[in-house]
Each structure stands twice: as C-alpha cells, then as structure tokens.
Design a protein around this nucleic acid. Structure first.
Lengths: 194, 194
DNA sequence: TGTACATCAGTGAACGCGCGTTCACTGATGTAC
DNA sequence: TGTACATCAGTGAACGCGCGTTCACTGATGTAC
C-alpha cells in the first residue's frame, strides 16, 4: 500500500484504534466520528464508508472492548494453578483489571447504547466474555438452588465490586483499608473428581 | 407569586423536575440545559442563575436521584418484618426497584461525571443512601474477616445484579427463568440478641 | 501484456442543527429610612 | 405608610463551536477481455 495513497488499506480497524485512544484519553464524551477520523489521519467524511454513524462505531469499539476483556480474563486465569479456586480468582482478577485499566472502555461496554444493539459482532464478543466466566464457574459444584446460580452470584459480585471501586466505596472511612475481592466473592465448593 | 411573573419562585427545583422528566423520557442524551429550561417554561438563559453549567444541573439531579433511591430503600424496608433477613431483603428490593423503575437516573448517579464531584449535596445524598445499606447490614454478625466486609459483599452483589438485569443476563438462555436475587445474595448470620 | 472500464475508498466544501454562554436589558422584590 | 433604591431573577438576541451528514468529485484498485 503506497504512502499518501488515496486508499488506506485498513481504515476500519484504524478508526477503532483511534476511537479507543480517544476513549482512554478523554472518556466517552471525547469520542466523536470527526475526532476519530482526524486521529486516523483521514478526512471526517471517511468513516461513513465503514460505520453506520457514531453508533456503529461505538458498537465496533465495544466489540473490541469485549475482546480485550476476554483476553485479560483468560490471561489471568492461565497464569494460575489449575484448581477451581485459583482459576476463579484469575478470572475475577482479569475482570477487575479490565475495569481499572480500561475504565472508559469498561463503562462503554456496559452503557445504555449497548443494550439490545443488534450488532452481531458485539453480541458475539459479549457472549464470549460471559462464556469465560461461566466455564470457570463450571469447575464448582452447582448451587443446589439451581443451574446458573453460581454464575450470577460471582458475576454480580465482581461487577458490583468493580463499580464500587470506581467510586472509592470499598472502605468504611477514607482512612481504612480497602476490602479485598477475595473476602467478597461467594465461597463455592469445588467440583469433586470422579 | 403572580402568574406570568418575571420571577418564578422556585425555578431551581422546577429545573430539576424538568431534568428528571427528560431523563426518564429520553435518557441522559436528551438532558440539556436548554431543554430543561424550555420544559420549565423559562428562557434558556435562566438556568445560569441557579446552576454552574450543565454539570451543576447534573449534580443536582443526581443528588435528587439519591434521595429517591434512599426513599425507596427505606419504604421497602419499612414494609417488612423487623428481622434481619427481611430487612435486608427490603433494602435490596428497594435498590433493584430503583434501578428498574428509574433506570436512566440510576445510570446517571453511577456515571463518570459523578465521581469526585465535590458537590456537597450530592456527596451527602450519596452517603445517606449508602448509610441505609450499612445500617441494615449491622443487623447481622460482622464477617470474621473484618468490618465492612458484609456491607461490600451485599452491596457489590445487589449492584452487579441490577446491572446484569439491565442487560438481560440473569438467565442462562433466552428460555430459562431469571435467577432471583434471594439466591444470589450472600447468606449472612443475624446478630444474636443479648 | 495491455487496455477499457466498473467499483470503491477517501476528499473537501458545504449544510443545518442544537448546544452552552454572554450580555445588555427589564421588571419584580425586598429593604432603608 | 410611602418613597428611593439596590438587588436579583428572568428575557431575548447574538455568538461561536463542533457535531453528523450530504454530495459531487477523484484517484487508486481490481477485473474482463
């Protein structure tokens, strides 16, 4: 692909990269189609060839966000011993790292416009992330109350914990220590080997 | 106060009311200073006399949001038997009702611009809501791991549960039943009477 | 291999829009005396 | 009680801004033959 070419080659991905950078630097409010285009070194009309408006770009960014999210969880899980408890801690650690290190992106993927998006890529990426959490919960005995109960318990807890941390609500007073996530997670029973 | 008066009388509160209505009808994106003014039947320049820009209005709306939040929790708690478990269920029910019935407002009060706001009213209202949850947790034995652990466990769980519900993630498949919150909350030990 | 041509991705000017903000103003309210 | 006056809350015109979108265009790419 020639330098100064009229054709970019992979503008779609370049725009998503630019959008992620804008998000990181200035949060959701500083992410616009025009800014993403400028940052990718392209005219402001160019994105229209790749995304269905700003919302289309947001969906694509969120889909990419879920991929980063999944990668972090898998990475943290792989770095730990294979027993259920450690695997779960890996997942939750990845979850919390994502919320902390990619705060604006984390907030975006769980924001209003991502509900019922209908965007196939986004739905797939989101399902994949949730799948990772689910399969790790499968290392434990199912809660007697029914299937999927453990998944929701873990997932609710870690998500809420991430949000409370964003608002610095994890300590009783400004002086006291933060309550660590290990103390907060439900205590599940590892599945018996047969 | 005369009809058609040049002076409104209680414009500040009227603007907050208008803002809440806009929020309910169209979400955060449809809440602007100009629209709130128009809805309150006042010129678009009037809000400047009462709020420090859009952000000031948002903070005031969020403070009011936390009051509604607190009221709902107290109301649900008061409607139940006095034992610890029922009181806690009341609180969480209020929490979840607020998230469901005032979704945009719920999302606003936990949104980026509300972090480190420095707005005294907002901080007070937010502390009050959290206080209600804390005092209800005080009906249970503290977790041996330390103070404030139960608070964070309950709070993380119910908050995460509310978010997952917004994204319809409380069921394993579109056909299966929603996992109810009672199964998800941590099982705490009621405090012994002395 | 070369030529003609269709397709496609990016350009740049132009558009209208709603936004927050400023400003001189006005008219009502409240206070001093 | 009445008058003068300061204060304050709301007006309406005007501003500049960045936004998304449209449109005719151009130049590169890819394909048919």
């Amino acid at each position: 692909m020639a330098e100064n070419s009229h054709h970019h080659g992979d503008l779609r991905n370049a725009l998503i990269d630019s959008a992620l950078a804008l998000l990181t630097e200035g949060g959701r409010e500083s992410l616009t189609l025009r800014r993403a285009a400028a940052r990718a070194g392209v005219s402001h009309a160019a994105p229209a060839h790749h995304f269905d408006g700003l919302e289309g770009l947001l969906h694509a960014v969120a889909a990419r966000g879920f991929q980063v999210f999944s990668d972090l969880m898998r990475q943290e899980r792989a770095a730990r011993p294979a027993d259920a408890q450690n695997q779960l801690l890996g997942i939750t650690n990845g979850y919390l790292r994502f919320a902390a290190e990619h705060e604006a992106l984390f907030n975006l993927i769980f924001s209003e416009p991502m509900k019922n998006s209908g965007d196939a890529d986004l739905i797939a990426a989101s399902n994949e992330a949730f799948q990772i959490l689910s399969e790790t919960c499968a290392l434990f005995e199912p809660d007697p109350a029914g299937p999927f109960v453990n998944e929701i318990r873990v997932w609710s807890t870690v998500h809420g914990y991430a949000i409370l941390r964003q608002f610095d609500r994890l300590r009783a007073t400004p002086d006291s220590a933060v309550v660590p996530v290990d103390l907060v997670l439900p205590r599940l029973v590892p599945r018996q080997r047969d």
